[in-house]
Structure formats: structure tokens, C-alpha cells
Amino acid sequence: MNKLELAKKANEVRKGIVTAVHSAKAGHPGGSLSAADLFTYLYFEEMNIDPKNPKMEDRDRFVLSKGHTAPGLYSVLANRGYFPVEDLKTLRKLGSYLQGHPCMQETPGVDMSSGSLGQGLSAAAGMALAGKMDGKDYRVYCLCGDGEIQEGQIWEAAMFAGHRKLDNLVVIVDNNGLQIDGRIEDVCSPYPIDKKFEAFQFHTINIDGNDLEQIDAAMKEARQTKGKPTAIIMKTVKGKGVSFMENNAGWHGKAPNDEEYAIAMADLEKIGEELGGAN
């Protein structure tokens, strides 16, 4: 898929996020939107997966360690054909298979239940280790939040992955700079993020995570990196694509009302038009 097509897909994924969270009247749009380009790249370009066979044995795996951005994962899974896009509107509703945080037993395409921050990277490292033990060539991707890495278990897992030289593991840190209580450097700074992962024996790459070209280059570099896991620290804009949500911590975990939803969708429609219309 070329970059323009990917950009259009990412815009559709963003529409799905906003629609799902609006319908649920709750959820986390900010961090879902910031990572929408990454979700899109992984599921439409990078990963060896089959939406018709979500449990394919040797598939690449994805763990959404920052599980509150489930709307982003659900939207990309729906757009990739794991389940109907229309079902995104059932997010967080009683009886829906789209739980507030990812549940591997409920949702096709979800490789690990997650959402209690700090735990996903350990599971991803376990998957990567299993691949190494079995001589399989599948890869494992794990998305963490920049606030999430304040959790100590992330660094236990990083130490383990570095020590075990899990070069089939890619950790992506969504560095949108904001957490619930404000700017990450004001709350409890995790900076310098790259130096920390380097110290834990990771290969590190710093990119603009809302630039598909840069995501593409980083993923290729990660594939070529042998003997150590890779950490991609991607600078992003929280709420990316929706004018009033961008760089606003207030939209970490809040749903748009009907009026705001209309503005958000108009913003995204405009971006779509600028990209040259629907696919």
C-alpha cells in the first residue's frame, strides 16, 4: 500500500475512533488518535496477519499495553476486516464484544488482554521469547504510552527483553507528551526515554509518529536490527486530526458531545478531501 493510501486509511481509522467514543459517551480519544498512524501502518503494512484467521499460529502479534486506547485498536481491526466497522458504535456498551479495554477472549484480532498500565510489555516479551524458543520468525509489537512507562514493570520487562536479546520485539512509545494530570515532564518526567531504553540494551529510533514515511523507515530499521530489541520513540500529537482535541490533555479520556462530534468529523472529512477523497 502506498503512503497516500495508508494516509487515507489512517484518516478512516480516526473517524472510527471518534465515532466509537462518541457513541459510547466515554473512552479515550486523545491517545487513540495520536497513535492512529502507527495502528494503520502495523495492520495494513507491517504485520503478517490474516483477518479471516485471527489466531493464525505464526502470525505477528500486537500488544496494546496502553490499553485505554482500545478505540484505536478496534477501529484499525474493523477497517482491516476483522469485524464490521458498524460495530464500533457498540464500544463499551453492555453485551458488546468491544470492551472498554482490550479483551482477547471477546474480540477477534486482540492478541492480549490489557489495559492495566505497565503489564503489556511483559506479555509481549513472553510472546517474543516463545517465538525464539520455537525457532519461529514471527515478530511482536507492543505500544506503550509515555505516561505508562512511569510504571516500574515496564522497566522489568525492558531489562528482560534486552538481556534475552529479543530482536523480534519492537516497543513503540507514543510520546504525545500528555497524561491525565498534565504534561508528562510536569507530572513525573520519563525523559530521556531513548537513553533509558538504550541503557536496557535496546536499539532506539526517534521519529515523528504522525509521519507514515518515518514510521516505515523505523520499522524497516527494526527488522534489520539483530541481537537486540528495538524501541521506537515516536513524537505524536495527542488528539491528532481533530482540531479541538489536539495537544489538549482534557481529551485524554472524554467523549465528544453531538456538537463536538460533528466538528470532529468535519475536521476529518476535510483531511480526507485534502488527501484526495475516499479510497
Binding site: 502479534r61 500488544v63 482477547m104 492478541d111 492480549m112 503489564q119 503489556g120 510489555l121 511483559s122 506479555a123 509481549a124 516479551a125 513472553g126 510472546m127 517474543a128 521469547l129 516463545a130 517465538g131 524458543m133 520455537d134 516500574g152 514493570q153 522489568e156 520487562a157 531489562m159 528482560f160 538481556h163
Partner: peptide, 21 residues
Amino acid sequence: DCGIAECNMTGIAAGLATCGK
């Protein structure tokens, strides 16, 4: 051996179990 990091050990085991171990 996961070292003195029980919480990570638990998550590693979870990941291994999803792969049939």
C-alpha cells in the same frame, strides 16, 4: 530465570501461554 522481578515474570508467562506453552 527472570531475576528479582515477579510481576514481569507473571506477564512473561502470560505471553508464553498465548503461544501454547
